[in-house]
């Protein structure tokens, strides 16, 4: 079977195709990556919020990276309600202690994990939030309890710079 032996022509053909493919990929990648968040978008990555005016039982909504962030100063009943929930009852089990390090303050992205709508305050079957788009109910810890959303509302990276200021991001 002499035809099966690799010839110079076959080698050149394979080598040319391989180099061509690498070259094409090198050109395609910048075309794809240009659509990812650019430097100016990434530069707006953190924001500081003054929360001194917020009284218990109220929510402040601020914009961070184009998304609303809920800052909730919770009442004692809300904290108790969130902390007594059994893990087995949760769709996405997370302890309230882990979500709100300082129990009085709940900071999370006000974005429904289903398809990204902004849930409404003090609504729904669990006294937390209710998403009007497709009917997801969240509890007083922002955890999903009922409806199509798969996850709890996300807690972003944040810290208290001082007693009155929260830095998000």
């Amino acid at each position: 079977m002499s035809e099966k032996k690799t010839k110079r022509r076959d080698f050149l053909f394979t080598a040319t195709t391989a180099v061509g493919a690498v070259g094409a990929a090198a050109v395609v990648w910048p075309m794809i990556d240009q659509m990812n968040p650019d430097a100016s978008v990434k530069a707006l990555a953190s924001t500081e919020v003054d929360v001194s005016a917020l009284t218990p039982g109220n929510t402040l909504t601020v914009l961070w990276r184009g998304k609303p962030v809920f800052i909730r100063r919770r009442t004692q009943e809300e904290i108790d309600e969130a902390r007594k929930v059994k893990m087995e009852d949760l769709i996405h089990p997370e302890k309230d202690e882990d979500r709100a390090k300082n129990p009085e303050w709940l900071v999370m992205l006000g974005v429904c994990t289903h398809l990204g709508c902004v849930p409404l305050n003090d609504k729904g079957d669990y006294n937390g939030w209710f998403c009007p788009c497709h009917g997801s109910h969240y509890d007083t810890s922002g955890r999903i309890r009922k409806g199509p959303a798969p996850l709890n509302m996300e807690v972003p990276k944040y810290e208290f710079v001082n007693a009155n200021t929260i830095k998000i991001g």
């Binding site: 659509m35 990812n36 968040p37 978008v41």
Partner: peptide
Amino acid sequence: VTWLWGGYSVDNPTLTR
């Protein structure tokens, strides 16, 4: 989704594309 948006939410980069 981030790639489609060109950011962390629907915003100007999303509109132009």
